[in-house]
Nucleic acid binder design. Structure first.
Lengths: 212, 212
DNA sequence: CAGCATCCGCTTTGATACTG
DNA sequence: CAGTATCAAAGCGGATGCTG
């Protein structure tokens, strides 16, 4: 990216991560950890492969990602965030919080479950901190999400080992739940099935701004 | 901006504010309040006037800015943020926090004092909350900044009415102070002059990540 | 197959000039 | 003051080809 040439912290940040796709590459690495080149291509539908290569070079010289030459015998190189790259998490959480209401306008868009971890962590809080740990598994078409609620809410992909509750249903309804458009108490009416201890789900409070 | 077409809160946010210059326009409106078109041109050195017009149209249709047809007799139209636009402040603060270390590499860049309000608010905290209010005026070449410290730190442009302390010096040293690269106690050694009650300045603590 | 590089048509941006 | 008009240059998206 051409520099803004402004002595402004925001402009300087955008000089580094303001290019098209850059923040979404960082989103992938934050949500999924170290990735192969092709994992990134899968997680960034629409990107041109030459652009991914370009951006990775930029981010590497900016000290945001590193390439680990894969452990032998399989020669896969893993791309991972440096501490400086991990430090961008608050930026992506703030963007997710602001952008979550716009998920309502995502008809026909590509969709991947791990993308939901950001609005989930940015918006959901624990109604009963200090009440121990609650684990909730979220199931949609073909992907799995796990919420761990214990004072804070942590979201990750993959199945929970022994969830207190399992929520499943159509993706749209799950999005509504994770972004605060419906309350956990309205889950059943929205077409969601809650298995196990429904109290675990009711510990979730959505602190979304009601903008859109 | 061409949409990413991804059902991701971050991608949706970037569909709206991810274009070049968009977040910097919002920066200007957050830092300075309602602006005229030419104020924005001044505050965004390097932008082409057709791009500013384009972006303002986009942001207007996205519900982020509005145009107030100026009160007669003077026909100036004021551009201001909607509540949805104001809601982007946490995004810009997070970017400023991350980007502040890069201010060290801003030689020869354009520089305006009000740009410093973001890293100041994102990085500085009050060492002695509950100790009442402290007002600090910051003077650099030709612009003035005021910090109000009272549990939180609030930064704005313009002079303070009755500051407890006045800090002045070369811009580079002030940037070092406001971004946590030097501690208030080292201010004098860095070429800064503190007038009035130096204790007010020592109430500032910088909570910057030491990344760069 | 993973990890690119190259080419090409299209869109966006930047610089400047001009207008109500 | 508040933009529009024009045009060259840069960036992007899509397809395809190359290499270990």
């Amino acid at each position: 990216m051409r520099s803004y040439r402004q002595a402004c912290a925001i402009a300087k940040a955008l000089d580094v991560v303001g290019d098209r796709w850059s923040l979404l590459i960082i989103r992938e690495l934050l949500a999924r950890g170290a990735c192969r080149y092709t994992d990134l291509l899968d997680g960034l539908p629409g990107i041109a492969t030459n652009l991914l290569a370009d951006r990775l070079r930029q981010l590497e010289t900016a000290g945001i990602v590193t390439r680990d030459p894969g452990a032998r015998p399989v020669p896969v190189t893993l791309i991972r965030l440096t501490p400086g790259g991990e430090a961008l998490r608050p930026v992506l959480l703030a963007l997710a919080r602001w952008g979550a209401p716009l998920l309502a306008t995502a008809d026909g868009d590509a969709s991947q479950a791990h993308w939901l971890t950001f609005p989930a962590e940015a918006i959901l809080t624990d109604r009963k901190p200090g009440k121990g740990r609650a684990v909730i598994e979220i199931r949609t078409e073909d992907e799995l999400l796990t919420l761990e609620v214990d004072g804070v809410v942590h979201a990750r992909t993959g199945r929970a080992s022994r969830p207190h509750a399992v929520v499943s249903g159509p993706r749209a309804a799950l999005v509504d739940l994770l972004t605060g458009r419906i309350d956990p108490s309205e889950a059943a009416a929205a077409g969601l099935t809650i298995g196990g201890d429904a109290k675990a789900v009711r510990r979730l409070r959505a602190s979304a701004d009601r903008r859109a």
